[in-house]
Every structure is written in C-alpha cells, then in structure tokens.
C-alpha cells in the first residue's frame, strides 16, 4: 500500500515521516519515530494511556490517524521535560508517588499539562473531572489529584 508523506512538528522539532494510510498516530509515534513514551493500553479510546497534545488539544493518539499529523503541532511525554529539568508536573508526580507501574503516567502527565495550560488554577473537582478519561489501576488516583494540585501551586509560585 502506498505510504503517505507527512510533515509534522513533534516536541518542537519538525519531522517528516512515511505512514500507512490506516496507521494510527500512536503507531506512527511508537513504531515509526520510536517515541514509545505514549503507551498502548486499550487501543480504542477508553484508557488515555496514549494521550498526546495535538494543536493545543489532548487527543487519544490511538484514535487519530498518523496522516492527520500533517502540519500539526504535537507534544508527547518525551517533550515535557526541558534541558533545565523536569516539568513541575513530573516533579510533583515523583514527590507524591502519583505513579506505580507507570504505564498510565505519560497519559496522565500530558492530560494534566493540558489542564494546567488552559486552567492554571484548577479546583480539586476540576482536576477529577478533567482526568476522568485517564484510567489508572494502580494508584487509586488520590495521589495523582494531589500531584496535579501541587504542581499548579508550584507553577504559580514560580511565575
């Protein structure tokens, strides 16, 4: 099958890739670009392990075609830390033990980043609501909520 040539920006770097027309963005990232931070859990849009930010919105990358990445601006977990260090969310997840097996963690971090990008001062209720699309079977969620609230505070103080 003819592959499609796609130009896209991933974590701030412009990238060109060949994708199969029916290949998902998740497969494209993981197999084509070796960015394996986004995880495949359910592959049907229900778990959030594959979450990435695409043009400012979170998407389940298992439900997006690789071809749709054309001209898009994509952030994955690999782009969250900067050369100056971890993102405050990553730091807060570490300090709150908001992760156990870690398979859901990239998705939670990306969804949380998108929450704080649009709402730097979320209430606990808003955090719970926003992150209800990400499943975690290990932590019981409580510490993830704490971590996101801590990171929000930290970022406000840092600004």
């Amino acid at each position: 099958m003819a592959k499609l040539h796609v130009e896209t920006t991933i974590n701030g770097e412009s990238t060109e890739i060949l994708v199969d027309p029916q290949q998902s963005l998740l497969e494209t990232l993981r197999d084509g670009l070796m960015l394996t931070g986004a995880k495949e859990g359910c592959n049907d849009g229900n778990c959030g392990a594959c979450t990435v930010i695409m043009d400012g919105r979170t998407v389940n990358s298992c439900l997006v075609l690789g071809a749709e990445a054309q001209d898009a601006d994509i952030t994955t977990i690999e782009g969250l830390a900067t050369p100056r260090g971890l993102h405050p969310l990553q730091q807060a997840f570490l300090e709150n033990a908001a992760l156990q097996c870690g398979i859901c963690t990239p998705g939670f971090l990306i969804s949380s980043k998108s929450l704080l990008d649009s709402n730097p001062n979320p209430s606990e209720e808003e955090v719970r609501f926003w992150l209800a699309g990400n499943l975690c079977r290990c932590t019981g969620y409580d510490k993830i909520v704490r971590a996101v609230l801590d990171a929000a505070k930290e970022m406000k103080a840092g600004n």
Binding site: G37, K39, I77, L99, G102
Partner: peptide
C-alpha cells in the same frame, strides 16, 4: 517518603516495557 527508584524513567517516558522493545 523516598521517591521511587523507577520514578524518573517513568515520568519521562523512558521506562521500557515489553511492548516498547524493537
């Protein structure tokens, strides 16, 4: 309350699971 030994790899997406191996 020590930070998990595997925490850094897991929050940065570097932790390798079986499905990540090529």
């Amino acid at each position: 309350p020590i930070v998990r030994s595997d925490g850094f790899e897991k929050v940065t997406g570097r932790a390798q699971y079986t499905g990540d191996l090529k």
